[in-house]
C-alpha cells in the first residue's frame, strides 16, 4: 500500500515537472517540423522530422557570428568580473574597510535596478565616447553588471574560510598574494563556479543592453532573434523555434550539471544549501 502511494506520489512529481517543461518541449519539437507542419491545424504530434530548419539556420547570414558573440562576450565578461570581484570580496571579507556595508549595498542595488533605467545614461555615454557597437565596451559593461552578484557570492564564501588559514600562511612568511591566490582561492571553488555559471547564463540571455549599446557587429543571439523573427509580414516560426532550441540547450545543460549551485546562484549567495 505504502509502495503504491509512493509510486503515485512519484508519478505526480514527474507529471508536474513535465507539465512545466511542456512548452519548451513543444518549442523543441517544432524546430524539427517542416515549415508547413509548424502551423498545421490540427497540430501534428506525429510528423516526418527534418533537419532543414537547422541547415537553414546555420547557413543564415551572420548567425555564426552572433552565436560567437554571445559565447565570447559571456565568457570574457564573466572572467573579468570574477577576477575583479574575488579581489574585492577578499578585501571586504578580511579587511572590512570603512563603508563595507554601504559599498556592498550599492553594488547589489546596481543589479536590482530596472535595466531600462540603467541603460539610458550608459547609452548616452557610449554614444558620446564612440563606444557603441564595440565588443570590448559591451563586454566590460556586462562585466560591470556581473560584478555585484559575484562580489556577494564570493564574500559569503570567503567569510566561510577560517582566518587561521591566512594567519598560518603569513606567519610562515607567505605574502598576502600567496594567501589570496594559493590559500583562500582554492577553498572558495564552489563560489567561483556559482558566480561563473549564473553570470554566464545572465549574459547569455541578455537582450536589452546588447540591443541598445551594441550594433550589427556585436549583436548576440537574443538580439538576432528579436530583430530577425519577422519575415514576409509574419513571424518566421521555423527560425524562432530552431534558434531558441539551439540557444537554450547550454543553460539547461548547465542547470543539470551544476544543480548544486542553483540556489546560491539564484539568490546572490545570500541563501546556501542544496535542493
Amino acid at each position: 500500500m505504502s509502495n503504491l502511494r509512493q509510486t503515485l506520489y512519484h508519478a505526480l512529481l514527474w507529471l508536474i515537472s513535465l507539465l512545466f517543461f511542456s512548452p519548451v518541449a513543444w518549442l523543441m519539437l517544432s524546430s524539427f517540423k517542416g515549415r508547413n507542419d509548424i502551423l498545421a491545424v490540427p497540430a501534428k504530434l506525429v510528423f516526418t522530422p527534418t533537419l532543414d530548419n537547422y541547415v537553414q539556420l546555420f547557413e543564415r547570414n551572420g548567425f555564426l557570428q552572433q552565436l560567437l558573440n554571445s559565447f565570447i562576450m559571456s565568457v570574457a565578461a564573466v572572467i573579468v568580473a570574477v577576477v575583479v570581484s574575488f579581489l574585492a570580496a577578499f578585501c571586504f571579507s578580511r579587511f572590512k574597510p570603512k563603508g563595507t556595508d554601504f559599498l556592498m549595498f550599492l553594488l547589489l542595488s546596481v543589479r536590482m535596478l530596472p535595466g531600462t533605467a540603467v541603460i539610458l545614461p550608459v547609452y548616452l555615454m557610449y554614444v558620446a565616447f564612440g563606444w557603441k557597437d564595440s565588443h570590448a565596451a559591451l563586454t566590460l559593461f556586462y562585466a560591470m553588471f556581473s560584478i555585484p552578484f559575484s562580489v556577494w557570492i564570493l564574500k559569503g564564501f570567503i567569510d566561510g574560510v577560517s582566518l587561521r588559514f591566512d594567519e598560518t600562511g603569513l606567519v610562515n612568511g607567505a605574502s598576502w598574494w600567496h594567501v589570496i591566490f594559493r590559500v583562500v582561492l582554492p577553498q572558495v571553488r564552489p563560489g567561483l563556479i556559482a558566480a561563473f555559471i549564473f553570470n554566464m547564463i545572465f549574459v547569455w540571455n541578455e537582450f536589452l543592453f546588447d540591443y541598445i549599446i551594441g550594433g550589427r557587429k556585436t549583436a548576440n543571439v537574443p538580439v538576432a532573434l528579436a530583430t530577425g523573427a519577422y519575415a514576409d509580414g509574419g513571424v518566421d516560426w521555423a527560425f524562432v523555434s530552431t534558434l531558441s532550441t539551439v540557444y537554450l540547450l547550454p543553460p539547461i545543460i548547465a542547470i543539470y550539471v551544476f544543480q548544486r549551485y542553483l540556489l546560491v546562484g539564484m539568490t546572490f549567495g545570500t541563501v546556501r544549501g542544496e535542493v
Binding site: 512545466f20 519548451v24 523573427a229 537554450l248 539547461i252 539564484m266
Partner: peptide
C-alpha cells in the same frame, strides 16, 4: 528538477516570442 527549473534560465526573448505562437 532540471525540467522544472528550465523556464527560469530560458532567454526571455525566446520565451516571449514562442508563447505568441
Amino acid at each position: 528538477l532540471t525540467l522544472l527549473f528550465a523556464p527560469m534560465v530560458l532567454t526571455p526573448v525566446a520565451t516571449g516570442t514562442f508563447f505568441r505562437l
